[in-house]
C-alpha cells in the first residue's frame, strides 16, 4: 500500500494544468499536508495535450518517479478524452473528474469508461465564464476535486487560497472574488452518477 495520494491533471497547453497542480499543492500544504507538484515537460504548445501531477501525504514524500497509477484524474477539457488515454493507470475505485456539460452517465457511455471507475462531472468552463469572465476551468476544478475526494479540508483550503489570491492580485480584487466563487460553485455543482 502506498502512503500517498496521487492526482493527474489533463489539460491543453494554455489552460493552466501546470498552474493548477502548483496551486493545489500550495493549498494542500497550508492544510498541513506534505506535497509534490510537477508538470510533464515536453514540447508545450498552445492547445496541445499536457499533463501535470500531485502527490499528497501526511508524511514526508521521498518518491521522485513519475505518477503511473493516480488515485484521481482531473480533465480540464473533455475533448481530450477522444485523443488521450485519460484513464491510463487509473486503478479500480479510481476517480475521474471532468469539466464538461455532460452528465457522468453520458461520459461513461460515450468513452466506454469501465464501471469500476467513479465519474464526476462539472461545467467548470461555464462557472469560470460566469464568475471570472473567461474560460479558465482550472481553479474551479479545485472545488470539484475536494468534493469528490474529501482529500482536503474545504474551508481551510478556501481561506488559504483567498489569502494567496489577494496577495497576487492586489490591484484586481474582483479577480479574487471571482475565483473564490468559482471554487465554491464547482464544489456545490459537481455531480456524481
Amino acid at each position: 500500500m502506498k502512503d500517498f495520494f496521487e492526482i493527474r491533471w489533463h489539460g491543453r497547453g494554455g489552460q493552466g494544468a501546470k498552474t493548477v497542480a502548483l496551486l493545489f499543492a500550495d493549498a494542500a500544504l497550508a492544510t498541513g499536508k506534505y506535497i509534490q507538484a510537477f508538470p510533464e515537460y515536453g514540447p508545450e504548445r498552445m492547445g496541445a495535450p499536457v499533463q501535470s501531477f500531485n502527490r499528497l501525504a501526511d508524511r514526508e514524500i521521498t518518491v521522485h518517479c513519475s505518477v503511473e497509477n493516480p488515485d484521481v484524474v482531473v480533465i480540464l477539457d473533455q475533448s481530450l478524452m477522444s485523443t488521450v488515454d485519460t484513464t491510463e493507470g487509473l486503478n479500480d475505485g479510481g476517480v475521474l473528474i471532468i469539466n464538461t456539460v455532460k452528465k457522468p452517465s453520458e461520459i461513461r457511455e460515450a468513452y466506454k469508461v469501465r464501471k469500476e471507475i467513479k465519474i464526476f462531472t462539472v461545467d467548470a468552463s461555464k462557472i469560470s465564464v460566469d464568475e471570472i469572465g473567461s474560460n479558465k476551468p482550472n481553479t474551479p476544478m479545485f472545488g470539484a476535486l475536494i468534493k469528490a475526494t474529501s482529500i482536503l479540508d474545504f474551508d481551510k483550503m478556501l481561506l488559504d487560497t483567498e489569502e494567496k489570491l489577494k496577495k497576487k492580485f492586489k490591484s484586481k480584487p474582483e479577480v479574487v472574488a471571482g475565483n473564490i466563487n468559482s471554487i465554491k460553485r464547482a464544489y456545490q455543482e459537481v455531480v456524481a452518477e
Partner: peptide
C-alpha cells in the same frame, strides 16, 4: 539537483 525531476517539482 536533478533537472526537472527536482528543479521543476514543487515540494514542502
Amino acid at each position: 539537483t536533478d533537472g526537472f525531476i527536482i528543479s521543476h517539482a514543487m515540494s514542502r
